[in-house]
Amino acid sequence: MAMMPKRVKHRKSQRGTMKGNASRCNYVAFGEYGLQALEGSWVSAKNIEAGRVAATHFLHREGKVYIRIFPHKPVSSKPLETRMGKGKGEPDFWVARVRPGQVCFEIGGVVEDVAKQALLRVAHKMPIRCRFVKRRHSL
């Protein structure tokens, strides 16, 4: 079982829309290097967990990995071979809504080359195109 909220107000949610670009969480805030989404998509809890495992495994207890997205949204589905109707399906998995520009993962405490390689491995686990970004120190 991957990441999911501990408490929710409603078990199921509607699909919703994802308009525009990320207007916050679009810069590296905690670590030194980050992975920025270039597309908008739902990123499932499984994807996030796979990214976390890939990064921590590559870093060998060096540095720190920050996950900047959380799967707040439940996605429901109907069981196989079921006729349509009879109400909404049961929650199946959880997703994070990611808009273009969102920094999904960050790494600190390692040199740039290592961070780049680790984040490349994370990028391969993501369902979207991503780019490597550095923290902006000046204005």
């Binding site: 991957a2 999911m4 501990k6 929710v8 929650p91």
Partner: peptide, 22 residues
């Protein structure tokens, strides 16, 4: 650096289903 959590540890920490408020 705190030891990174293994997949099993993460699984144990996470609830099976979230509690619905109310």
């Amino acid at each position: 650096v705190a030891a990174a959590k293994t997949a099993e540890q993460v699984e144990e920490e996470m609830p099976v289903a979230p509690e619905v408020i109310g």
